[in-house]
Design a protein around this nucleic acid. Structure first.
Ligand SMILES: Nc1ccn([C@H]2C[C@H](O)[C@@H](COP(=O)(O)OP(=O)(O)OP(=O)(O)O)O2)c(=O)n1
Ligand SMILES: [Mg+2]
Length: 405
DNA sequence: GCGGATCAC
DNA sequence: TATGGTGATCCGC
């Protein structure tokens, strides 16, 4: 237990094995946040909205209680029809990649002010933070948190103001790399994008090992090929693979480390991430999967500075979603998570178990969305429709025809 | 159509 | 002391 004294919190609580440099335990974070925000207008408002959702949950439960066995039967038949149609449409032939920069704004600021590297850093202002670095996250400092509260969690926090023109410039360089693998890549925001690298992999299959080699040698020839490579920055954090070799640079004859990237998706994405790093000195993470929904989830598996591939077969996909908490699915937020939990659904396989209930209390569109989730089915084509500049609500985005009533 | 709810960055 | 700005969709009227 933290020792709450005069100033309201204690930063030297070691009982959970955490020193000040290592951050806070979850319990201490919750305690500090509650203590500093309960009673505020913001908190009252949030509580009121929460009570309204509890009302809606109660309504849904009432519908279930009053439904007849025949209603359940109809609902079951409806969902099973959906499931069989969806299963018939399962497409595992595309290789979809989701790339997400690591702590993007904060990483840019740390790159340009290296003394910040080992310190807790957040980007934003006193009233709102956009993101934080991993040191600060150990203290519970997160995006969408007001700076003054973050300071309570982490008094040594360094808050640097947003510099959007700079982030846009960095994003433009990163997008240049994406375009090399999929000219039709779709940006979801400044720091993330979806790529369909199916075509690239076909071309890549015929590339020689030499063409798939990334050199670390700092000679003129290789620098001319990769003009923005910053050799000083490549020492510690460059993406690694088991295929690293010490070799002699064929141009200047000096010993150089080379990375031979494979012809497969893992190889292509390692190469992509290495290029991003060499051109920006920033790391990113990636997920590889047969559809965009799964790819996005995969990105988080080995974040930061990592990648994860979900193999393109039905068994692997079903195993992947089996015990996945529904909150991990893009489109299912805090409210839907709570609603589903009240209906007995916590993981994706729970969706299948309770599919009749879900069909009784949700719209057809939402029900079908949940069925897709339970099968691990998602969008397999990437379109950068200029109409839709960003993908903001995964639940309904990327559907065949947006409904305009 | 419009306002409210939800979700995401 | 104090809790962002923006874009998108669906739902229920
Ligand atoms: N509520 C939020 C969440 C994020 N962002 C901004 C700041 C982030 O730097 C950027 C990217 O969002 P991410 O969710 O990808 O978060 P990060 O890139 O900062 O961290 P990471 O991806 O390593 O978790 O979007 C924001 O303005 N408001
Ligand atoms: Mg990111």
């Amino acid at each position: 237990m933290a020792d709450f004294t005069s100033d309201g919190f204690c930063l030297n609580d070691n009982k959970a094995g955490l020193s000040q440099m290592e951050g806070h335990s979850k319990e201490d974070i919750a305690k500090i946040l509650t203590k500093n925000s309960e009673g505020s207008k913001f908190y009252q408002n949030k509580k009121q909205r929460h009570q309204a959702t509890e009302q809606r949950i109660a309504q849904k439960k009432k519908i279930l209680e009053e439904a007849s066995p025949a209603d359940y039967n109809d609902a079951l038949r409806k969902t099973d029809k959906m499931l069989s149609n969806l299963e018939a449409s399962r497409d595992l032939s595309h290789t979809i990649v989701h790339v997400d920069m690591d702590m993007f704004y904060a990483a840019v600021e740390m790159r340009d002010a290296p003394h910040l590297k080992d310190k807790p850093v957040a980007v934003g202002g006193n009233s709102m933070l956009s993101t934080s670095n991993y040191v600060a996250r150990k203290f519970g400092v997160r995006a969408a948190q007001p700076g003054f509260l973050a300071k309570k969690l982490c008094p040594n926090l360094i808050i640097v103001p947003c510099n959007f023109p700079k982030y846009r410039a960095v994003a433009a360089i990163v997008r240049g790399v994406f375009a090399e693998y999929d000219p039709n890549y779709a940006s979801a925001s400044l720091d993330e994008a979806y790529l369909d690298i199916t075509e690239h992999l076909k071309v890549r299959a015929d590339r020689t090992e030499e063409e798939r080699t990334l050199w670390r040698c700092d000679c003129e020839y290789w620098r001319s090929l990769d003009a923005d490579w910053k050799p000083s920055a490549t020492q510690e954090t460059e993406p690694t693979s088991s295929e690293n070799n010490q070799e002699t640079c064929p141009e200047c004859g000096r010993v150089a480390e080379s990375i031979v990237t494979g012809t497969d998706a893992e190889g292509a994405v390692l190469e992509l991430r290495t290029k991003v790093f060499r051109r920006t000195a920033l790391t990113c993470s990636a997920g590889i999967a047969p559809n965009s929904k799964l790819a996005k989830i995969c990105t988080d598996r080995n974040k930061p500075n990592g990648q994860y591939q979900l193999p393109p077969n039905k068994e692997a996909v079903l195993e992947f979603v089996k015990d996945l908490p529904v909150r991990k699915i893009p489109g299912i937020g805090a409210t839907t998570e709570e609603t589903l939990r009240a209906l007995g659904v916590q993981t994706c396989s729970d969706i299948h178990k309770h599919r009749a209930s879900l069909a009784l209390v949700f719209s057809d569109l939402s029900t079908e969305y949940f069925m897709r989730v339970s099968l691990g089915i998602g969008c397999t084509t990437i379109s950068n429709d200029e109409e839709r500049k960003s993908i903001s609500n995964e639940r309904y985005a990327l559907l065949p025809s947006p409904i305009t009533v």
